[in-house]
Amino acid sequence: MPRPKREEQFANSEICIVHAVQRCVRRAFLAGVDRESGKDYSFRKEWIRRRMEALASVFGIDVLSYAVMSNHLHVILRNRPDVVASWSDGEVAIRWLRVFPGRRMEEHLAEPTEHEVKTLAGNAERIAEIRQRMSDISWFMRSLAEPISRMANKQDECTGRFWEGRFKAQRIVDEAGLLACSMYVDLNPVRAAMASDPEKAPHTSAFDRIQAGHGKQIDSAAFDLKAVPTEEAAKQIRETPVDELRAKQKAKKRNPTGKRIRRDAWLAPLTLSPEKLSTDAELNRDGLRASDKGFLHVSIRDYLRLLRWTAKQGIAEASEKLPKSLATTLSQIGIDASMWRDLVWEWQRYFGKSICVGSPAAMRQDAERCGKHHYSGQAAASACFT
């Protein structure tokens, strides 16, 4: 059966949460150690992570969780049209030009100028179209996938596809489904036997949050959202050799803003703030992410405790009893604590073929919204939820 149309799953005009999966063509190990050639392409995982970090600084989309694997990646995204609506036309223009500078001549080595930003911002029809795209999950994934593909093909001196096709999308419809999906994503390297525990699984959101808790900092990949004065750009082009301009541009790509940040500062905070209203956009003012809004009614401490406990439960026969406090947390969210290990470790059995993730009641409600009777996996997942 063909995959559903994107507009049937989510719209850029409404806030929703989506689990996206993008696979390499033929499931080849194009971002890990290739089994056939023995070549190690693991460094490309950092390409992908940095590109996600950069896009998080300009799109109206929160990155909640992610895991970059050897032949595919998982990312949980929340689009934020409410955040994009708060941006001025000038802000929308500079953000768009950072990601899509457009076709230029050799002088494209210069940064977007104030004149270019002002010209684009003055085109009301074009800005309205761009504003919609800035909270569109499909445009985020496109902006992530295409540059990585070009870089890999250039390095391999080849042409053709790097990614298998369009990404798979699952709409997450309640907090119970979001907690389970986030845990499933963070534990992907552990499930694949690539790491023994979350602390040893780089290129995952869990690793970033753990490292940040230890004070780890990194060079920020966020885009610089300041346009270059037009006269200054023209002077650089006239007086600076092209090779020197290229070298400066390459150096700036490593750290566009010159900032050092906490390793997880570009990710959405995990815990929802009890002091904030659910309608509060909680805009981020540091230019690192769309907003400061959390996504779970769980503390980072309890989330990591549950993550570590779940990571140890790979062998059912060796499973330990879930601590009472964590079992209570799961029950409050609507998950049967006795089925938690099974839900996360056997995720594919329950939601592998589903386009919707959540408790059966929430899935049923969303199916009705789309004019359907039910979703695949809805009946099987009922055993895991209260």
Rank of each mutant, 00 (worst) to 15 (best):
A362S: 05
G314M: 02
I17T: 08
R142P: 11
K226W: 08
R285F: 05
I48D: 09
K253Q: 09
S42K: 15
W139A: 09
L267P: 04
V99I: 08
K312Q: 12
Q313E: 04
S319H: 01
D34L: 11
S70P: 03
F385T: 02
Q236E: 12
R263V: 14
N255C: 05
H203C: 14
A290Q: 07
H297L: 15
L178P: 00
L267E: 07
D197R: 11
L277M: 14
P229E: 02
I355L: 02
C384G: 04
L77T: 04
D40I: 06
T279I: 14
A93P: 03
E244T: 11
S319E: 04
A234V: 14
D366S: 08
H115F: 14
I94H: 06
I261H: 04
P147K: 04
G60R: 02
A383L: 04
C356D: 03
I218D: 01
V185I: 10
I315W: 06
I218R: 11
S273D: 13
R341K: 13
D82P: 08
E232C: 01
E231C: 13
A290P: 00
M52V: 03
E317W: 02
R289F: 01
I137P: 06
V18M: 10
D366I: 07
D366T: 06
S182F: 02
G258L: 07
M183S: 03
T230A: 00
G32I: 06
H214V: 09
A316Q: 07
G294C: 15
E125M: 15
L270D: 09
A381W: 04
A176G: 07
I76C: 04
N79M: 03
V63G: 05
T310C: 06
R349L: 00
R6N: 15
P2G: 10
R133S: 06
Y41D: 01
H72M: 01
N12F: 05
A383N: 04
R80Y: 01
T204Q: 03
K321Y: 05
H373P: 10
A201H: 10
K154C: 12
L326V: 07
I48F: 07
R26C: 05
T310Y: 04
P112N: 08
T240N: 12
S220Q: 08
K118T: 12
Q22V: 08
R349K: 10
L330P: 00
S13K: 15
S86H: 09
V99D: 11
S291N: 05
E114T: 15
I210H: 07
T310Q: 00
L64Y: 02
G294R: 04
A327D: 02
E282G: 09
I127D: 11
A93G: 02
K253R: 14
